[in-house]
Write a protein that binds this DNA or RNA. Structure first.
Length: 156
DNA sequence: GCCAACGTTGGC
DNA sequence: GCCAACGTTGGC
């Protein structure tokens, strides 16, 4: 099984929205490096659900892949912000995967993630990182889940 | 709102 | 193939 980290803006779609939706097509990915990772995802893989562009940004929960890569319909919708006029319907350029919630975690703010030695090499923390999907090692995934299950340093 | 980092586009 | 311009991401 592989592990991933997926970013979402909570103002648009946060972890609680995923819980309410039960499952959701993860659309709008328009980056070739991210596409490589999307296509490598397999049913049953787990993902850390990260809130980006938030105050504060951080980890919100665990999700799992329940549907593997398939063409993202939003690339063909001219009214959608993700529309891509260069994508050929016979050979769609962009894919989505379908995710479902597994477990909500204690929110782990980015500041705290930066202090975790297990994440020292993680691309999430690299300067200038803009990828919306990144692979995690087993250790990185386990460390985040453990931190999210433990009582927070700022919690009572 | 600002800015740094990065990806993409398009002229040459 | 180079590179400047532009757009987007994401932290602050």
């Amino acid at each position: 099984m592989a592990y991933w980290l997926m970013k979402s803006e909570p103002d648009v779609f946060g972890y609680d929205d995923l819980v309410a939706a039960k499952r959701e097509g993860w659309d709008g990915i328009r980056n070739y490096q991210a596409r490589i990772f999307l296509r490598a995802m397999r049913k049953g893989d787990k993902a850390i659900f990260y809130h980006s562009n938030a105050t504060p940004p951080g980890v919100a929960g665990v999700a799992k892949i329940v549907g593997e890569a398939e063409p993202d319909p939003t690339q063909f919708d001219p009214t959608c912000k993700y529309f891509d006029s260069g994508s050929n319907p016979d050979e769609p350029r962009w894919d989505l995967v379908t995710v479902a919630p597994v477990k909500k975690l204690r929110f782990i703010p980015l500041d705290e993630l930066r202090t975790m030695p297990e994440l020292a090499e993680c691309r999430l923390l690299a300067k200038g990182n803009r990828l919306s999907v990144i692979p995690l090692t087993d250790d990185e995934f386990e460390a985040i889940v453990a931190a999210g299950n433990a009582r927070g340093r700022s919690a009572r």
